[in-house]
Structures are given as C-alpha cells and as structure tokens.
Design a binder for these strands. Structure first.
Lengths: 192, 192, 192, 192
DNA sequence: AAGTAACCGAGACGGTACGTCTCGTCTTGCG
DNA sequence: CGCAAGACGAGACGTACCGTCTCGGTTACTT
C-alpha cells in the first residue's frame, strides 16, 4: 500500500523547518488559518514531504509544540506537595496563556474529530505530565501529606480539570487557575 | 456593514428545518464533515438563507443543540446537595456521551478559534447551568451543608472541571465523572 | 397562468424611473454589470414591478434606448441620395460611438441568446430605420440616381453591413464608417 | 499578479477535454447556459484547471471554435475572384448557420463587454480570414479583375459587413449572404 | 566511477466547500 | 390591486486548500 518511507533518509533540516514554520504560522495567523500549503511555502518544502511524514496538520502542530516547550512544565519535588503542585500548575497556566497555548488549543480542537490525534495528544502531552503528577502525589501520600484512600489518577483529574476548563472554555482567567489548587487539596487532606 | 435583515420577516419553517438538518447531519456524518452546503441541501433551503441569519457553522450547531436538549440537564433541589449535584452531573455526562455530546464537542472545537462563538457557548450553554448550580450551592451553604468561605462560582469550576476534562480530552470515561463529585464535595465540607 | 396585470393601472412615474435608471447604470457601470436589483434600487422601485412589465433586462434596455434617442437618426431627404445616406449613416455612427452605443451593444449581445429580444430589436430599432432607408432609396431609384434592378432591401444590407461590422467587431473605427457609403454607392449606380 | 503557471507542465489531455466539453455543451444547451462548472464536470476536470489557463468562458469557447473548424473556411484561388469570393463566403455562411455559428454568436456577444476577448476574436478568427481575403484581392487587383484605387481592407469590410449583419442581427437569411457578393463586386469593378 | 534508488522542491491535477452574487418568485403590509 | 421592500430557493461564480500525482534534480548507497 503506502511505500513506507525510510526514516533514516529523512532530511533533518526540512523536518525542523516544517516544525518551525508550523509553530510560527499557527501563532501569527491563528491555528484556524493554518494550511499545509502555507507551511510548505514558509518552510521552503514540497507538500509531499509533509504528507510523507505526518498524517495531519494537528500531528505537525503537536510535534511543533512538544519541540518548543522542552522542560518548561516539569514537576518539582521540594517535599511540600502544595507548593510543588502550585508551581507546576502555574507553569502550565502560563504556557496555556502564551503562544504555545494558542497552538495547543487548536490541536485539541482538531483532535475532537480525529481520535488518533487525540490519542497522540494524550500520549505525548497529557500522560507524561499526569504520570509525573501521579508519582509526586504517591510520594506525598507516603509522606502522609494527603489522603491514601483515593487513586492518584483521580486526584490529577480533580486538579487539572479546572485548569483545562478555564483554558478551553475561557471560564474565568487561566492565570488564576493555580489558586484553585489549594481548594482541591483541601479535599485531598488526610481523613481524620 | 451588513444590511441587517429584518427578523420579523424570518421564515420560521426554514429556521427549524436548518436546525434539524444541522443536528442530524452533525450526528450522522460527524461534526467535522458538516458543511453549510449539505445543511442547505438537506433543509431544502438556499445557502444565503443560512448566511443571512447565522455567522458560522458553529453558531447553527450551538442553536441546534440548545433547541434539542430542552430541560434534560435541569438542576433538581431535593434538599440533599450531594444527591442533587450527582443527579445533574450524571445527566450532563450522559448527554456528553450521546448524540448531543458529539455535536457539542465540535462546537467547542470550532469555538477555539472563534471568540464570538466561544462567548456564545458560554452565554447560552455554560452559564445558565453554572448559574443554576451556583444558586443551588448557595442554598446548601445557607443550610450549612457546605462551607461558606468559598465562592460558589469557584466551586462550580471544581465540580465541572473534571467533567469537561474527561469529555474534551477523553481522559477516563465521561460516564464515570459523577463519581468524582463525591471527592470534590469532600473538599467543600464545612470547615470544622 | 400569469395574472396578466392591467396596463391601465401602471404607474407612469415608476416606468420612466426604471428606464432612466437602466440607461444611466448601463452607461456608468457597463451593460455587463447591469442587474435588475441595481435598477430597482436606483429607481426606488420593487423588483416585482420590473418583472411584472418586462420579460428581461435586454427588453428594458432596448426600451430605454428608444426612449432616449428620439429622432436623432432620422432620415433626411434633400434630393441628393449620396448626401442623405451619408448624413444618416454619420448620425448612426456617432450614436454607436456614444453612450447609446454602449447600451445598444449590450442589448444586441443579450439578443444573441434570446430570440424574442432579437425580434424586438429588429422590430423597434432596425426595421424602422431600414424602412426609412428603403423608402428613400425608392425615391432615388425613381429619380434615376441609382440602379433599378436591385431590391432596396438588399441595398440597405450592403450599406449598413459595414457599419454594424465596425460597431460590433471593432474592425476599424465606427466613425469612419460613413466613408464606406461612397464605395457602396459606386456599386449601386445605374447600369450603363 | 497571477503566479503565471508553467505552460510546459500543462496536461494536454485535460486541455483537449475542456475544449471538447465546451463546444458540445455550448451547442447542446446553448451558449447562454454554458457554465464553467458544467464544462469542468463534463470534461472531468477541476475548475481550477480551467481558471489556470483561460481568463474567461468566452476565451475557451473561442479556442474551442478554432480547434473545431480547422481549414473549413480557407480561401481558394482559382483565378476567378468572383467565384473564389463566393466560395469562401458560402463556406463561412454555412459555418455561421451551423453549430459553430451558435457558439461563435455567443463568443461575440460576450466580447461586447470584454475588450480583451474581442481583441482575441479579431486576432484569431477575423484577421486571419481578412488577411487571406486581402491577399486574394491584391492578386485580383494585379490581374485587373477589380479596381485598384481602393484599399483591399476596405473591400473586405464591404464584403463581410453584410454577412455579419445577417449573422448577428438575423436580418434576412445568412445562407443568402453569398448572393450579396455579386452586388458588392459590381462596385469593385475596375473604373472605366 | 557509474548506476540506482530514495527523498527532495515544485507545482499541476481532480476535487470539495467556501462565502458572495444575482436570478426570478413569493410574502407582507401600506395606500 | 399595484406597489416598495426584501426574504426566499436555486445555483454559478471565482478562490482556497485538500491530498495525489508527476516532474527533474540531488544525495547516498550500491557494485
């Protein structure tokens, strides 16, 4: 069926040029007006080169985001779970409020009718952060800082839910989201 | 700017036919493959009639949703805040998991690069439910069922955040979302 | 079938306003960009009023032309057939080169795929002039100024053919057309 | 301005299919109901491929005509100018009365409000025939068959004027046009 | 060193849908 | 009932992108 291109022969310069062009165009024109043709033109690349290596616009944008952010939203561990959570959520909210957020918003939008992209988003963006959070929460549980009768995975839902709500629905200000963390933690305190 | 059509001369039959065609097509073909042309054809309507009254595909779909759901996600008041919240969140989750959810998902996607549509979503869908929730929570606060040192609006963020997270990111199962309510309420119990 | 409107109830003011608007728009915007909607708007008239009384855009324009030109291309009779022909052809060429020509050109264009309009053009514009020419030529034949073994109708074809050729195909200059009359008359001199 | 497509990359099959579809549709439905969309559909071609290579519907139709007629209206030279002229005008009249005439009529109509198309008509259709006629007339002049004090170009106007008059205004029958040639030639006989 | 196979830039292609325009009909309310 | 106003169903317009498809040119591995 598909000729299955050989990844070893892939042109690294074009690869990076496509990611850069995608990110820049998504930010400047808005994700909604991002087109494969524009990316190809800006990157100085043939369209086929894009279609050869990516299945969709969203996949490029997602890779461009991950290429862009690096370790900006890593999870700290100072021993104080409340402070660490707040630090991480603050970093995430700042990112959501910035250029990366614009692009990420578009990727999530596209993923609503592209299950593979959605899976890709979860695999490369959401889960790594959730895993880090889960690990940190387990440490806190062992330290007795938070209750032990609740799955850490559920806890991450309670924590990140409001952040995404503000990000994706524009309910309230994303930058205020970190303040919600305290209230969530109230519910996660050890049972007396 | 636009010649501003006279709403009194609007053809009610066409209006409804457009909403019905939109909803049906969005469900059967998927929101991503919904086109104005298909809506017009299915509704037996000229394209201009659509463009005359709606600014975008998303606006039609949003109106179609609101036209469709009626009072399915109303807020009950049995006196038991926990039960009432769970009832409402359950109804909402069921809706998200059904046909309306498919369409709503597409609307929110489109709203990511259309601020007016996003505002419209908040005004006609999110806020009415949030207001009802807020009102119910205030009753519960006065009844001493939940803490009084937290804005009800913030509370709704904590409650609905995880629901939307599951709905829009596919994290976990939307139908499990109601179970999260208990844990959120834990954090909202009156301070001792 | 058609309700057959009563011509006696026709609004004379609207009638004239439509003709004037049509002529002015055809001249200023060009016949090709003339629309019924623009005519109605400019004339301050409902579209239905136009459709009620005219079968097509070309019919309005033709009537507008005939309303406009009056007796500008009447046929003189000084006794000198050569001079008279030249006078008339000169007047016609001048008209073709002016505003009326622009509109007439468009009417003839439209008449190419509208046989009724074409018949209308011949009946109200071409034939009256041809009849006048025929009559004048008959006088000249009787006066022995031109040959008598050729139908006057054929003669008018020989005379006006080159004029229309220049007008409709832009071959040479329309305003030079009168000079061709002399050469045509050469062929129409009495047989020796 | 336009990105100026590279003619070397042009697809010859599509090119011919478009000309064929245009001619056939113009004849069967009538030039007035000819649409770019129908041409594209019938030719099995994207609309953009048409817009890429032709500036207007009329330009396609003109090319289709020229592609169609080949040498059908070539000018003979038997030594007898009267016979040769009649032969050619007869061929032209027959063409005007047939399918090509239907299309050509529409092209001329469109050219009335499209100066570039009109120029194109003259350049590719009218002038080649006029040039041939001019050349043949010059031979006849040198042979003393017709007068030498009149520009051959003016002569062609006198000859073809009546033909086009009958063709474009429907005055008389186009197929009778050849009979007019004799009378025109009367006026072109050498001055005695 | 020549041959060859893959990727590359470029861009034409068959399509689909866009949002606009104009058509000719239909509806409403005024005079 | 004629009229001004204008909404309506219909459908073509010319544009923008889609994803596929040749084209030569270049590069990197064979042999």
């Amino acid at each position: 069926m598909s000729p299955a291109p050989n990844p070893e022969l892939r042109n690294a310069t074009s690869h990076q040029a496509i990611l850069d062009a995608t990110f820049e165009l998504a930010v400047s024109k808005g994700y909604g007006k991002l087109t494969i043709e524009a990316i190809a033109a800006k990157a100085g690349v043939g369209k086929q080169t894009i279609y050869r290596w990516w299945p969709s616009k969203g996949a490029i944008a997602l890779e461009a985001i991950n290429d862009q952010i690096g370790s900006a939203t890593d999870f700290p561990d100072t021993g104080d779970i409340a402070a660490d959570l707040k630090t991480q959520v603050t970093a995430l909210s700042r990112m959501f409020a910035g250029d990366v957020g614009c692009v990420y918003r578009g990727v999530i939008a596209e993923a609503q009718h592209d299950p593979k992209l959605m899976q890709n988003v979860r695999d490369t963006f959401v889960e790594p952060r959730q895993t880090n959070a889960t690990r940190r929460l387990e440490t806190a549980i062992r330290a007795g800082q938070i209750r032990d009768d609740l799955s850490p995975l559920v806890m991450t839902n309670l924590i990140y839910g409001p952040v995404y709500l503000r990000f994706l629905l524009g309910v309230g200000d994303v930058l205020d989201a970190p303040n919600l963390v305290d209230h969530v933690l109230d519910g996660l305190r050890p049972r007396t």
